Amino acid sequence: MYTILATTPMGLESIVAKEVQALGYETTSENGRVIYSGDATAIVKSNLWLRSADRIKLIIGRFKATTFDQLFELTKALPWEDYIDDNGQFPVSGKSVKSTLYSVPDCQAIVKKAIVERLKKAYNKAGWLTEDGALFKVEVSILKDEVLLTIDTSGSGLHKRGYRLAQGAAPMKETLAAALVQLTNWKGETPFIDPFCGSGTIAIEAAMIAQNIAPGFNRDFASEDWSIIPEGLYDQERDYAESVADYDKDIKIFASDIDSEMIEIARNNATEVGFGDVIQFKQMDVHQLQLTTEKGIIVGNPPYGERIGERDEVESMYRYLGQLLNENPKWSMYIMTSYKTFEQLINKKATKRRKLYNGYIECTYFQYWGEK
């Protein structure tokens, strides 16, 4: 059994915890972290199935250290040989916040030296470790003198699904897009519209959720080469993911954007992941949007109006969304924006609000639930 850490963007801990619990594991949450216990299968399932987590790491040790001697000895006392192969590569990255040991390069060097000493003794190696095998990225993270040592199982961040061939100037991470959809509880029963689709990320993640497609099915992970992961386990779990995907589920997803170039990019991205015929893309100004069914859902990340000259245009868009909502009371709408007066422009208080971050921009996710 391993202690597993799913890192999350701030504000999405509860979403990731719910995903982990759906895989069958009990969780505890901290700021930006969801922690749980599981075996090798849990590592594989987490990488393949978690939609909103950033990375899956293994916690090797947690302790307090205020001197470099303490950091060295307590790191060396941990069973690194239970994780890292005798020829494994283990670069060490680090960060330190509000801690006595504030020099990150020194902390990295000491942790590296301690692991080397431990592995040389465990594997009975007199000379240098070759480090020409699988990759085990170690991180030393120190917050208020509390040390957390982890190994990354994912490799590239989980937002890198493998389908985004191109993107716009300020793309939304796939993991955040998935979270926005999951917060709506939409599973494909009603029409889904993203009127500000950009490179198509929200619409694509919505399609993957509706058809129960594992977000990690189309990429590789660092831990696939580890000896602690039974051979063939990743392939076995990918086969299972393939068997439970509902590729024939009839869903109606519409995505539009005022920029014709972005529509072309979005269409190509959707085709790459197999949704070329599932998502309907159209170059269109939001003021042309009409709702033609009794109920449905709008999810979007519109322009925030932060550039000079954009404010009037953005406020006009927001007022039109309010008009649509007023005329179609059974529709639900979920909009993420940094615009502080969004509710006044919509002329309606949100049913629920959630603070989220799009990159480094603090935003609010305004949720309007349609009448039942």
Score class of each variant (00 low, 15 high):
W80A: 11
R62P: 09
W80T: 10
P91E: 02
S93T: 14
F90K: 01
I59H: 13
T75E: 01
D69G: 07
F63R: 01
T75M: 03
W49S: 13
Q70W: 07
A77L: 07
K95F: 07
T67V: 11
F63M: 03
T100Q: 12
S52H: 08
R55N: 15
L58Y: 02
K57V: 09
K64H: 11
V92L: 03
S52I: 00
D69P: 03
T66K: 11
T75I: 04
K57Q: 15
L58W: 01
L78F: 03
F72T: 05
K98N: 11
P79K: 07
K45Y: 13
P79M: 09
D85M: 04
I56S: 04
S96A: 13
I84P: 00
E81N: 13
Y83F: 15
N47L: 02
D69W: 08
R51G: 03
K95R: 14
K57G: 11
K57Y: 14
Q70S: 13
K98T: 10
A77C: 06
T67S: 14
V97Q: 04
N47W: 02
Q89R: 11
T67E: 12
E73F: 02
S46E: 13
E73C: 00
I60F: 07
T100A: 15
D86Q: 13
D85G: 11
W80V: 10
S46I: 08
T66R: 08
W49T: 06
P79T: 10
K98A: 14
I60N: 09
I84G: 00
I60S: 09
D86N: 12
D85V: 02
L74G: 00
L71D: 05
D86Y: 13
F68S: 11
P79F: 04
A53T: 04
I60C: 14
Q89T: 11
D54H: 14
L71P: 05
F90A: 05
F72W: 07
R51V: 00
Q89I: 09
Y83W: 11
L58V: 13
T100D: 07
S99F: 10
L48K: 01
K95I: 09
F68H: 13
K45V: 11
R62K: 14
T100I: 15
S46Q: 14
Q70E: 15
A53Q: 05
F90C: 06
S99Q: 06
L71A: 12
K57T: 12
Q89E: 14
K57M: 14
E73H: 05
W49V: 05
L48F: 05
T66P: 01
P91C: 04
S46Y: 14
W49C: 12
Y83E: 08
V97E: 00
N87D: 15
R51E: 10
R62E: 15
R62L: 07
I59K: 15
V92I: 07
G61I: 07
S96W: 02
D69E: 14
Q89W: 03
F63H: 00
Q89N: 11
A65R: 01
L50N: 10
S93D: 13
L78P: 02
G88C: 02
L48I: 12
V92K: 01
I84H: 00
D82R: 12
K95E: 05
L78V: 06
W49G: 06
T67D: 12
L71H: 10
K45G: 08
D86G: 06
Q89F: 03
K76L: 05
L50E: 06
S46P: 15
F90Q: 01
L71G: 08
P79V: 06
T66S: 10
A65E: 02
R62G: 07
I56H: 04
K45R: 15
D54N: 14
L48A: 03
I60T: 13
